[in-house]
Write a protein that binds this DNA or RNA. Structure first.
Length: 237
DNA sequence: AACAGTTTCAACCGCTTTATC
DNA sequence: AGATAAAGCGGTTGAAACTGT
């Protein structure tokens, strides 16, 4: 991120901080009471204009803090719980296309917040990269994600998917993943869809390590992966 | 049971972008 | 056109929860 900013902006930030300090605004974890107040207020008056909302609701919180609490926690459509296999595939794929554009990625995972996806990426994917001694931004790691881990995830959800989509076949190895051609037809900058014949030489591959071995809410996502992916991808730019 | 080390994730911070006056 | 406010984004932090010894 470009960290250059003018002295005016810095001054504004400092003034905002000083103002918050003077107003004695609360920080840290939200209490049940605060949640209730915020929820009730938004239910009645709607969201937006967060600074004035915070004041009107009688919350000793910054508008920013209220907005974040609402978006990441209190919103009724926020989905909680384990990231499903389908969601994992989506995250991996969309991240390969867009990088750390968390909010953009989150738009394609209904009910998931950018914060949650970002946390998932940092705690699971980056952790795996470290264990494999890979740079998470390296081509090797990205190819491993796409050509080793994503097919594995697909294999896992395939039995359920086959019930509805028996024509789907998984093509193992470092080749195109069937079902993702639609994605690859869109080639944004930074995508690596041009590596369809890539060979994996990195230590990342064939390690036997499977980052998704542990519980993932299996069984609750028996709807068709492909139907879901089609819906998601059809809305991509 | 107690402690240390690790992981997770809610919340914050600094900054940019967008909207409004 | 410029100033200001509000909204939004991505990176980071720290406390709670979890795990291992």
């Amino acid at each position: 991120m470009d960290t250059n900013c003018g002295p005016l902006v810095k001054t504004q930030a400092k003034m905002q901080y000083a103002e918050n300090e003077m107003l004695g605004l609360r920080k840290g974890p939200w209490t049940l009471d605060e949640d209730t107040i915020l929820l009730n207020y938004i239910t009645t008056h709607g969201e937006g204009h967060w600074n004035s909302l915070a004041r009107s609701a009688g919350l000793r919180r910054s508008g920013k803090s209220c907005r974040l609490r609402w978006l990441n926690y209190l919103r009724p459509d926020v989905r909680r719980g384990n990231i499903t296999l389908q969601e994992q595939i989506l995250i991996l794929d969309l991240h390969s296309r867009w990088g750390n554009r968390w909010s953009k990625i989150a738009q394609h995972l209904p009910g998931r917040t950018d914060n949650e996806i970002k946390n998932y990426w940092r705690t699971r994917v980056i952790k795996q990269a470290k264990q494999l001694r890979c740079d998470v931004n390296s081509k090797e790691f990205r190819d491993t994600l796409r050509y080793v881990w994503m097919p594995r995830l697909l294999e896992r959800i395939q039995p359920a998917s086959q019930i509805l989509q028996p024509q789907i076949k998984l093509d193992p190895g470092p080749t195109q993943i069937q079902g993702f051609h639609g994605l690859d037809s869109v080639t944004p900058a930074g995508s690596f869809s041009d590596s369809s014949s890539v060979e994996l030489h990195s230590d990342c591959s064939g390690s036997g390590l499977d980052p998704w071995e542990e519980g993932n809410g299996g069984g609750e996502w028996l709807e068709s992966l492909w139907n879901e992916l089609e819906i998601k991808y059809s809305s991509l730019p």
